[in-house]
Design a protein around this nucleic acid. Sequence first.
DNA 1: GTGGCCTAGTGGCTGAGCCACTTGGAGCGA
DNA 2: TCGCTCCAAGTGGCTCAGCCACTAGGCCAC
Lengths: 233, 233
Amino acid sequence: MSEALRPMVKSRLYEQVLERLRAYVSEAGLKAGDKLPAERELAASLGVSRASVKQAIVVLEVQGLVEARHGGGTYLVRDTLDVEPVEQLVERRKRLPEVLEAREALETKLAELAAERRTDDELADIRDSLDFMRDEIIGGGFGVEGDRRFHAAVTAAAHSSLLADFMKTIAGQITESRNESLRQPGRPHRSLAQHTAIYEAIAAGDPKKAAAAMRKHVRTVAKVRLLDWVPED
Amino acid sequence: MSEALRPMVKSRLYEQVLERLRAYVSEAGLKAGDKLPAERELAASLGVSRASVKQAIVVLEVQGLVEARHGGGTYLVRDTLDVEPVEQLVERRKRLPEVLEAREALETKLAELAAERRTDDELADIRDSLDFMRDEIIGGGFGVEGDRRFHAAVTAAAHSSLLADFMKTIAGQITESRNESLRQPGRPHRSLAQHTAIYEAIAAGDPKKAAAAMRKHVRTVAKVRLLDWVPED
DNA sequence: GTGGCCTAGTGGCTGAGCCACTTGGAGCGA
DNA sequence: TCGCTCCAAGTGGCTCAGCCACTAGGCCAC
């Protein structure tokens, strides 16, 4: 109660940086794909430390408004730094089933191609991602990052730049579904088993088996997501 | 295209910290209000720098899952660190009109009381927040922080711990509406004018005028929000 | 008991620095 | 001239060490 009368939250510096950044983007008329000033430069011109600028950028990153490329600069994903209104979120969510259908089509083929075309190095990459996932899960994590690496490695091993490009366009939504799916009870271990099956088929050079294993995996993910989202209309 | 086949995003360290943190909370059975380990401690036990831990905490902060009190530790807001599913977001959103009604009731009375009870120091605080808001707007910002400080200062000046507690329970949703409202074109300046009117009434010790000015202001905010959210059902 | 004070604990922020990765151009060879 | 390699500059990722501001809790004086 003594605390109730005081200001409710202290403003954090990164929040002010955030606001300045948003204002800058709209004033400078930056569009999707445009490059933001370098972190060191921003820190200098805003008169704050680089760490604070970093915190602001991290926030924009998790909100999907910005993409930071290691060594290559930070880029706008949309034409603005404003957070997506709830309405659009819902809209996007309604299109998720479509995305998961598309994912099934693409990844099934990718697994098939990977089984045929993978080099030994690429197979090792897939194996590494599987190990990483296992470590994550053993360490109490969900294996999110390992899952991501696995699918990226399979995509690379398929040697189809066109399919890879398609995957890229739905990568964001897949990430979303991955995060949610892997948080379900017992999910990480089941996921690990399914990925292992995919890996083994690819290692054995068996395209049909790889495709089947991948299809089963993607459908597992999709089913959960489709079930827990029942639009009221 | 050469880039299309490579892993799509590199994992950031703060994301892994995030995952560990979530796992920790669920394993340790922490509940809303419980204290997280200190940043230095987390950094040490996770084997990462404090800056990375900080980035993860900032993410949790903007997602409203955690509250960091300067000098007082970091606390869970809910029973979990998982992000709120879209469904609940929509649910909460539907209750927003109610919140804004409640806000009108509370803040109108708070303004009235502040006009009667404010000390000179408190009046100065309100004045300061107004100046801060003006600076923000001149500097290209939206005046979000100044707005927050203004209402906090008025609440303090009203000397009603009960009303202040009520305000606290809807503070989160008010913040949300503030962020969105102030981003509308021309909004910051109009907001500044309305706040100035409230300030002047409080300074003059005119409770009726203060209440009226506050009511007008809150209704402006509410109207915009109510208009742009039309549930489909 | 009450109130003020002091100190340890903790978050906020900074500055300097190293490493990893990207990019673009210089320079070399065919 | 074209194309390739390689390197240096630019930039993000992360760490370390440290200072300051604020909070909380215990101690002490009254």
